[in-house]
Simulated scan of single mutants.
Amino acid sequence: MTPSSRTLAASERAALADLLEELGPDAPTCCAGWTTAHLAAHLVTRDRRPDTAPGLALEATRVGRPLAAWSHAVEDRLRASTGYADLVVRVRSGPPRWLPTAWPPVAALVDTAEYAIHHEDVRRAQPGWAPRTLPREAQDRLWGNAVFFGRLAAGSVPGALVLRRGDVPGAEERSGSGTPETVVTGEPLELLLWAAGRREVARVAVG
């Protein structure tokens, strides 16, 4: 499969696996307290242990915190019992074929934002990183993810949140209502990172 024929989710997965392999298990990430080994174990758990999904999805809620604690315990056990090289192989190969998340249309839906964000979590924690130049098609795909995460992030700002594409005139999405209005401008990948909590490394303008 050539890079051009892959879905964006598959391309981001492959690129992240390459970077994890290159950096080794002890490199920092933008996820607080996590090394590349922690992140690899998280991704393998997400891929292969559907029973951990509720905890990972609801971690930010009071109801989800006990479930999240158990999900992270599963990740910790996996990291302790599995060599890093094997974890990276599993990240690269993805979920087993019998899981719905292995089907390309489902993977495109659930993995695009996950792998784009975590790829940047690793990239942007390394010295000398620079933003990538993504093709318009990829940015258009990530715009939908940015809008979704923006709706979730709207509660973190007073009034309304407006995400505005810096690469496409007139393209913006408003979440919430009232004043003041927080306008965040950037390319879709940068907006996605900002909305997903990576505000220190997202290249956006906030006004």
Results as ranks from 00 to 15, higher is better:
Thr61Ala: 06
Arg62Glu: 02
Val63Pro: 11
Val63Lys: 10
Val63Gly: 04
Gly64Met: 07
Gly64Trp: 11
Arg65Ile: 08
Arg65Glu: 05
Arg65Asn: 04
Pro66Asp: 14
Pro66Thr: 14
Pro66Tyr: 06
Pro66Gly: 12
Pro66His: 08
Leu67Ile: 10
Leu67Phe: 11
Leu67Met: 03
Leu67Trp: 07
Leu67Val: 14
Ala68Ser: 07
Ala69Met: 12
Ala69Cys: 13
Trp70Lys: 05
Ser71Tyr: 10
His72Thr: 10
His72Gln: 11
Ala73Ser: 13
Ala73Asn: 14
Val74Cys: 07
Val74Asp: 13
Val74Asn: 02
Val74Trp: 13
Val74Leu: 08
Glu75Cys: 12
Glu75Lys: 15
Glu75Gly: 08
Glu75Ser: 07
Asp76His: 03
Asp76Ile: 11
Asp76Ser: 12
Asp76Glu: 02
Asp76Trp: 05
Arg77Cys: 07
Arg77Trp: 06
Arg77Leu: 05
Leu78Tyr: 03
Leu78Trp: 08
Arg79Val: 13
Arg79Tyr: 01
Arg79Ser: 05
Arg79Gln: 02
Ala80Gly: 15
Ala80Lys: 12
Ala80Asn: 09
Ser81Ile: 09
Ser81Cys: 12
Thr82Met: 00
Tyr84Gly: 09
Tyr84Ala: 07
Tyr84Glu: 03
Ala85Arg: 09
Asp86Thr: 15
Leu87Tyr: 01
Leu87Ser: 06
Leu87Val: 07
Leu87Asp: 02
Leu87Cys: 09
Val88Thr: 05
Val88Gly: 02
Val89Cys: 01
Val89Phe: 01
Val89Pro: 01
Arg90Val: 13
Val91Trp: 00
Val91Ser: 00
Val91Cys: 00
Val91Gln: 00
Val91Ile: 01
Val91Glu: 00
Ser93Gly: 13
Ser93Cys: 03
Ser93His: 07
Ser93Glu: 02
Ser93Leu: 02
Ser93Gln: 05
Gly94Gln: 04
Pro95Val: 04
Pro95Asp: 02
Pro96Val: 10
Arg97Cys: 10
Arg97Lys: 13
Trp98Arg: 15
Trp98Gln: 15
Trp98Cys: 08
Leu99Met: 08
Leu99Thr: 05
Leu99Tyr: 08
Leu99Pro: 12
Leu99Ala: 01
Pro100Gln: 11
Pro100Val: 08
Pro100Gly: 14
Pro100Arg: 10
Pro100Leu: 04
Thr101Ser: 08
